[in-house]
């Protein structure tokens, strides 16, 4: 199980010194598959001669990604400046913009921003005027996003080919929990003209909600690494109070246990924690997903979390008729 090896090396880089070539191959394949190769590269001070250029490449790639992500944030800020609404950077771009440890070596895909819900129509218009356009031209998906999701359908910039996700809260409206979006924005910290990042506590609440209350734990080791790196910036008592305010106390508590168990000094895990851990570590030394049944169960759960049963049935039926099949 090379995801387990990856986690051991991230926890204690000295472990890498004892690896043979087969160990290194498994470590690198798992790190790439989990999109943690850049993080691994920053974590390791030394490596065998054959592995060093691979890690150098990863560092260079993630440095370029951070540069691109910050430029994209700058462009969005420029397009939205006339509206005078706060634009809160989320996830990777926020970590890079604030120079946080979680951003070091992190892959950054799309630009994720949070804006007040009442500003969404104006934001949408301003982005379209600045050459962003819809990715999916599907009436059902579009209507679904607008009615039930916490974000607009993804948009892509015509020239720069980069995606932007515009959020008005951090969980789908159909999820069991309803975080206080207005409080997220009210507590956000300004970092440059018109751009904000979430407060130290809210950053962790968002990361934990994204990882454990939404989605199927695809990329979960990376999300958990983010949380592990964000935790020292938050006061534990304030964090638990804030998480409870957003209705996500249990999720944040679980994220803290898992972060400590996998990347830190250890923690007492519940049975459910152990099941999540088994899903997180489902990756072999060729970078392949293992534990197919468990992975599929989490895929089903992700839908269950998102919608009440009747709505889920209708959604799956519509998607099936459109030819969509689970991977």
């Amino acid at each position: 199980m090379s995801a387990a090896l990856l986690v051991r090396v991230l926890r204690d880089p000295a472990v890498a010194a004892g690896l043979d070539a087969a160990g290194w191959n498994g470590l690198l394949a798992a790190a790439r598959a989990e999109r943690l190769i850049g993080t691994l590269a920053y974590r390791l001070d030394d490596a065998p001669a054959q592995a060093r250029p691979i890690l150098d490449d990863a560092r260079r790639d993630t440095a370029r990604e951070a540069q691109q992500a910050l430029w994209e944030a700058d462009r969005a800020a420029l397009a939205l400046a006339p509206l005078g609404v706060p634009v809160v950077l989320l996830k990777g771009t926020a970590y890079a913009a604030a120079g946080l440890k979680a951003g070091q070596g992190r892959f950054i895909g799309d630009l994720d921003i949070l804006v007040p819900r009442e500003a969404m129509p104006a934001v949408e218009q301003a982005l379209i005027a600045a050459d962003w356009e819809w990715v999916k031209e599907d009436a059902y998906d579009d209507a679904y996003y607008r009615q039930w999701m916490h974000e607009l359908p993804p948009m892509i910039h015509v020239e720069r080919d980069r995606l932007i996700d515009v959020h008005h809260t951090i969980l789908p409206l159909t999820a069991r929990q309803t975080p206080d979006a207005a409080a997220l924005i009210a507590a956000a910290i300004p970092i440059s003209d018109g751009l904000y990042i979430l407060s130290g506590e809210d950053r962790i609440v968002h990361a934990a909600a994204h990882m454990l209350a939404d989605g199927d734990l695809q990329g979960g080791l990376r999300n958990l690494w983010d949380i592990y790196c964000l935790l020292p910036d938050a006061d534990p008592v304030a964090l638990q109070a804030r998480a409870a305010h957003h209705g996500l106390g249990a999720h944040v508590a679980q994220a803290r246990r898992l972060a400590a168990a996998l990347y830190g000094d250890g923690a007492r895990l519940t049975v459910w924690d152990r099941i999540v851990r088994a899903r997180l570590l489902a990756r072999d030394g060729w970078g392949r997903e293992t534990r197919k049944l468990l992975v599929f169960a989490f895929y089903l759960r992700s839908h269950w979390l998102r919608m009440p049963p009747l709505m889920l049935a209708r959604h799956l039926w519509t998607k099936w008729r459109k030819g969509h099949r689970p991977q």
């Binding site: 043979d20 070539a21 087969a22 290194w24 191959n25 690198l28 394949a29 790439r32 065998p48 054959q50 592995a51 250029p53 691979i54 060729w286 970078g287 392949r288």
Partner: peptide, 12 residues
């Protein structure tokens, strides 16, 4: 044999 590879290829 026994080298650290730059890339892994899978035919699955």
């Amino acid at each position: 044999t026994g080298a650290i590879a730059d890339f892994t290829v899978r035919l699955q």
